[in-house]
Design a protein around this nucleic acid. Structure first.
Lengths: 208, 208
DNA sequence: TGCGATGTTGACTGACCAGTCAATCTATTC
DNA sequence: GAATAGATTGACTGGTCAGTCAACATCGCA
């Protein structure tokens, strides 16, 4: 479910304005024919982006890493940007869904936030490269991809803010600081800790 | 004092390897002759970087904004990178000094952290463009400039961590989570809130 | 006033790389 | 076993910019 939706979401941003002109788009429309190479390219891109960074790498690096020809990347994706867009949307949808699901549970707000933090940390432990790419190249890249996906990113803050807001009305949380401020600080703290792990400036122990 | 020190720190990173070949380097050595144009270029760069982003802008944009010829940028700076390096180092030194000074005061650790957060927020209020550039283009740009200045950035985390560590020994703070973890989360929360202000996803009220 | 040093100019070059495209290969269908 | 459609290839193009450089302007000093 999530993969098809994420793959379809290709408004992109930068790059050409000639979208949706050809037949389909990413996935070869109806007949599920060649999911192999497309997936291969995405997985290779994660590794290359994580290793060299999005801007520092060339499309040929991705093709080489995937073991396919240069042109094939453009057979499955409209642009280099769209490869990253796809990776991001795919994962971000999962995160948003996890937040919504957590929020729906009948547990104290504090535990909800702990669950969300735990989910993000688990995502990192499960696939560090992918999380590195998403955080470093999108979430924290406010001038490039962060701007293109600002709405999606802000949605996550909003959901977290909603949890805090509700808890403040219930009297679970103190009302001194605004919910959206708290949400921002909460998310920022998690992301910074992950960034610390990613770049090895702190080693991985917990506490929260 | 701080400007001359910051201007001198020019190991840089990327770009050419032909450093320090010509006479002096940045500031025209001994005789304080033309501080005008150099400062003009730095100020223009702040505006351009804040508006367009470092990667998206051209060196000619900086020159135009400053009202000087293209080549003059290269008279005062070895590379486009070095312009940003200079801006960063200049401001970061001020921050590090503020943290050290705060730490030296005989006040509770909680107040120290509040003072540091306040200093960063004040820096933003005083010159939002400069803080935007430093946060967006350096501090959060872990793959490009963040990597080049990792040592400086980590130094700040270390100083904050030191405050927490001391407070844990004193019994002021609980020892459950490691000091470096706390420092990372503390700094991340501040930076994320500022980022929220910078990109207008949250409006500016306080609470902490 | 003349001369070296320093400041200032902007056209030009060289490298880099995203994206194109025509050709080739590999099913699948009738 | 042709014919069609999609998959795959990689050499090539076009545009973009960082950085260079040779010429010109201005300043300070003897």
């Amino acid at each position: 479910m999530s993969s098809s939706r994420a793959a379809a979401g290709g408004e992109g941003g930068r790059a050409g304005a000639s979208a949706g002109s050809r037949s389909g788009s990413g996935t070869p429309a109806g007949g599920a024919k060649a999911p192999d190479k497309r997936r291969l390219i995405l997985d290779a891109a994660v590794r290359v982006f994580a290793r060299q960074g999005f801007h520092a790498c060339r499309v040929s690096d991705i093709a080489d890493e995937a073991g396919v020809a240069y042109g094939l990347v453009y057979h499955y994706f409209q642009s280099k940007d769209q490869v990253l867009d796809t990776l991001f949307l795919q994962r971000w949808d999962v995160l948003l869904e996890a937040i919504r699901e957590t929020d729906a549970r009948a547990i104290p707000a504090r535990e909800k936030l702990e669950a969300i933090a735990g989910f993000i940390v688990d995502s990192y432990r499960h696939d560090p490269d992918l999380m590195k790419v998403i955080i470093v190249e999108v979430t924290r890249a406010a001038n490039s991809f962060g701007a293109a996906h600002l709405a999606d990113i802000t949605l996550a803050y909003g959901l977290i803010g909603g949890i805090v807001d509700q808890a403040q009305r219930d009297g679970q949380f103190r009302p001194e600081i605004s919910a959206e401020f708290a949400a921002q600080a909460f998310y920022g703290a998690i992301e910074q800790v992950l960034t610390g792990w990613i770049f090895g400036v702190v080693d991985e122990d917990d506490g929260a």
